[in-house]
Simulated scan of single mutants.
Amino acid sequence: MSLAAPASTSTILLAAGEHSAPVTQLAARIGLSVLLLAVFAGLCALMWRGYQRRAQRQADVPAPASAAPNPLDPADGVEGVYASTTTHGDWLDRIAVHGLGVRSNAWVSVNGEGVFFAREAAPDLFIPAVDVVGAELAPGIAGKVTGGTGVVLVTWRLGERTLDTGFHPRAKADRDALVDAINSLTKEGTSA
């Protein structure tokens, strides 16, 4: 017994003008694509405007030093990711001026004079030892959330402001050593 439809049934369907629904409606797809691109561009423009307004509100933040008094070799430092600098205690309040909020690959070096961040595609940052408040491990900062204790958080003073700078070392073994080296600067400063 054959379950296949007789040839006459398919001939009848074709003769009756029945066919499958159109697969694409080009005009509707182009219109929807243009609409989605316009919404995306609008959202990007709003984010850019918000970042620019944040920079205007933070115009009173003085420019930090970008060079160490004695040049430090980045190769002697710890490699990782400079996440951002934020207002102390508010890890989402990113500092938008002077390139402090720009995420970049970096090397951090610590010596008796301070902490130096040699950054790629962003201004370098030098924090003098007298301005270092301390360092600790944290789960994240604006621009980098690792969970656990993956970010080295350096607390320091810039003018009248207290700031936090987040750095994520590539090697997990470098985290505690970096925190200890930075905290030793505060002990040296208080004993002098």
Rank of each mutant, 00 (worst) to 15 (best):
D90K: 15
R103T: 14
V133P: 02
S191H: 09
W107Y: 13
E160L: 13
D93L: 01
T155V: 06
V132C: 03
A27W: 11
L125C: 06
V179W: 06
R54M: 06
L32N: 12
G42R: 01
F167M: 02
A21H: 11
S8T: 12
D73P: 04
V110I: 03
N105Q: 15
T146H: 07
G189C: 07
A38E: 01
P71D: 14
P74G: 00
A55D: 07
D60Y: 13
P64D: 05
I127H: 11
A67I: 08
P123M: 01
A16R: 02
V97G: 05
Q58I: 08
T162V: 15
D76G: 09
L3Q: 13
T149G: 10
T190K: 07
G114T: 12
S104N: 09
L35T: 05
V78F: 00
D90Q: 15
A173F: 05
V132W: 03
S33T: 13
F40E: 13
P123F: 04
L158K: 02
A59W: 07
V61S: 02
L14Y: 04
G148F: 04
A63R: 11
V154P: 01
D124F: 07
L35K: 02
R157H: 14
T85F: 02
T162K: 10
D131V: 03
S66Q: 15
L92E: 10
V152A: 04
A5D: 15
S191D: 07
S2K: 15
L3D: 14
D124K: 07
D180N: 04
Q52P: 00
V154R: 08
F117E: 03
V133T: 00
N183A: 02
A118Q: 12
G114Q: 11
A75I: 08
F40N: 09
V23S: 12
P128W: 08
R119C: 11
W156G: 00
R29T: 14
G150E: 08
K172C: 00
G159I: 04
D131Y: 05
A55R: 09
I30G: 02
E113S: 07
I12G: 00
K172T: 10
V102E: 15
W48C: 07
E18V: 15
I182K: 01
N111P: 03
F116T: 10
R49K: 09
G89W: 09
G143E: 12
A21S: 10
R170G: 03
L13D: 01
A129T: 03
N183C: 04
V97I: 05
G89A: 05
L32W: 12
T11L: 15
L43E: 14
L37W: 14
A171L: 15
A41W: 09
S109L: 10
A67D: 09
L153Q: 12
F117G: 00
N105G: 13
M47E: 08
G114Y: 12
V23P: 03
A38D: 00
L26G: 06
L92S: 10
A5S: 14
L26P: 07
P71S: 14
E136Q: 08
D124H: 11
P62C: 03
S104D: 08
D60C: 06
R49N: 06
V152E: 05
A142F: 06
